[in-house]
Amino acid sequence: MFGKNNEKKWYQTEGSNSDTVISTRLRFARNLNGYPFPHIMSGEQKKEVNEKVRDALIGGNSSLRDSFKYIDADELTPVQLLSMVERHLISPEFARNPRGGALLLMNDESVSIMLNEEDHLRIQVMGSGLELDNLYDTADKIDTLLDETLQFAFDEELGYLTACPTNLGTGMRASVMLHLPAIEADGTLRTLAAGLVKIGATIRGSYGEGSKSSGSMYQVSNQVTLGISEKDTISNLNEITNQIIALEKKSRARLLENDEYQDKIWRAIGIMKNARTMDSAEFADLYSMLRMGVAEGIVSGVTTDKLSDIYACVQPAGLMEKFGDNMTPQQRDKKRADILRKELANV
């Protein structure tokens, strides 16, 4: 369904700090006055909210009319939903319970507005480098546009009112996805995580709430949303991220002096270039080694940009969306290995 669109997606472009930063995301939680929150809404009310937001964004003569498409979540197959989770367009929670929900998706997939997930609106903006400031500007513009016609629930003291009190205030969650193999390996990450909690930030697995880290991918995000402005939140997170990146780079330099560690990278490449079948867990670990090798200039013949593209292609639902919904896990593992052999031929 989305393959037909030939526009380059945001994750196919290389961002700044691409050796450690995989992507950056920022979202605003917003709700409409006069409606219950989605967890106790009727189907009819959800429909009304979907239509109100859709019309506010792309109705009439809106300048964004041709930039977004409206997608009814009820019309998506489970595979399409999962594929969207893999591309971070929707949350795992939304995919589990899509009933009555909808999605406003920008053509290049850099903006996705989930309707009736936990809140009436989750305005999410994504980019490939460390670009929180740019993402904020985009989200802010869309929010301001919607604010012109929609009646957002807002309180002078509590800020934007959200279903869960953890999002009160700005309703903003900014997060940076980082590849941190070195500080994960040498234990620095563990001490770091403790410090982050104390300054109102968290670090967790790549798919957000409750997810585990695979392939040394971690998401750093702000935790507190009330009493701190959007700009301050972003500047704090930028500072934290830059410190983590500096630590990771230092650890990488130290680790790579070790022949055994370099050997691990070459072995990973050997397996990826020759395997006939590979499950997603094994792929995540090997990919992590390969990515680090490429980012540190040890391995040539492929860019981190291309690697991100390959990564998206070989995720389970991504494969099924492209090669058939009824693929068994074994068939997927075979296909994954085929793609890797082909794409990494010049490495």
Partner: peptide
Amino acid sequence: IHGNTVHCGK
């Protein structure tokens, strides 16, 4: 959750 504070920002 948030400490003794009120909203600031947008």
